[in-house]
Simulated assay, not measured.
Amino acid sequence: MSVQGRGYRYVGPAGLKAAVRPGSGGCRIDSAADFGSWVAERSAAELVEPFTFVVGMDGVLRLAPRRSEHVACAGGEMVLSAGEISFVREAGRWAVADVSNHSTGYCPDVSSWSAVAHALDGIGLERPSGFTHEVVFRRCPGCQEHNIVREGDFVCVFCGNDVPETWNVDPVG
């Protein structure tokens, strides 16, 4: 699966990335069969809550329990997108109910939706036309803190400086 898009490095607490062990990571979902097997192993209680997801640099969706860290789900690697996702069974088929880019470890831009859409289309899951909840992340040029922009107010909640309207969370990316 070949996907293009911005790669996002982990920008969260270093200790969380240091705890990731080689070979760990979320469950790879390469196909409809993979998803079918994965969802069959989930309990009804698990399926009520959203799951942590990442789309790896290979374009493959990886899923983990909601309270998992995105960096652990990604095996410590860069991603094309990250967030939370929930599923619903409609007319005998599974579909995406809600999906967001809410990952404070990777802070992906809303433009990362294309990678998510491509991964979901590749496994045949019906999906919305975009993130059902978009999170706008920005890094403050003054204090360097990561912010979630709310209600279009591009002001740092930590120091009051303006934050840019374009994505700038990873100074290297």
Rank of each mutant, 00 (worst) to 15 (best):
E145S: 10
L16Y: 14
R138C: 05
A95Q: 14
F53R: 03
L16M: 09
M57S: 06
E49L: 09
G23I: 15
A82D: 03
V99D: 00
V71G: 05
E77L: 09
I29T: 03
G12C: 04
F51P: 03
P108Q: 10
S81D: 06
N147C: 05
A82Y: 07
D109H: 08
S100A: 04
W94L: 08
L80A: 01
S112F: 12
E90M: 11
S37L: 14
D98G: 00
L80Y: 05
V60F: 05
G23M: 05
S43G: 12
W94S: 02
V39E: 03
C140Q: 06
P108C: 11
S86A: 11
E41Q: 15
Y10C: 03
R127N: 09
V135S: 12
S31M: 09
A32C: 04
F131W: 15
N101G: 10
V54S: 01
S100D: 09
S112V: 12
E84A: 05
V20I: 10
G142W: 02
F137A: 05
E126P: 02
S43E: 07
Q144A: 14
W94M: 00
R42F: 01
L47P: 08
V136D: 15
V39R: 06
I123D: 03
P22T: 03
S112N: 04
D121S: 11
G25N: 08
S81A: 13
A14G: 12
S129P: 02
M57L: 13
A91F: 15
V48A: 15
V96G: 02
E41C: 12
V48N: 07
L80K: 07
E90S: 11
A117G: 01
L120R: 05
A64S: 09
Y106A: 11
N147P: 14
S31W: 00
S24A: 15
H133A: 15
V54H: 01
L47R: 07
W38E: 01
V99G: 09
A115I: 07
G59A: 03
S68K: 04
V79G: 03
F51C: 04
I29K: 02
R21N: 00
P108G: 08
T104W: 05
R127M: 10
L47M: 14
P141T: 07
G15V: 00
V39H: 04
G12E: 07
E41P: 00
G92P: 11
S43N: 06
F131T: 01
D30K: 07
R139M: 11
P13W: 12
G23R: 07
G75K: 13
G25T: 07
G25E: 13
C27F: 14
L16N: 00
L47F: 07
D34H: 12
G59V: 13
S100C: 13
Q144S: 13
A45D: 05
V135M: 14
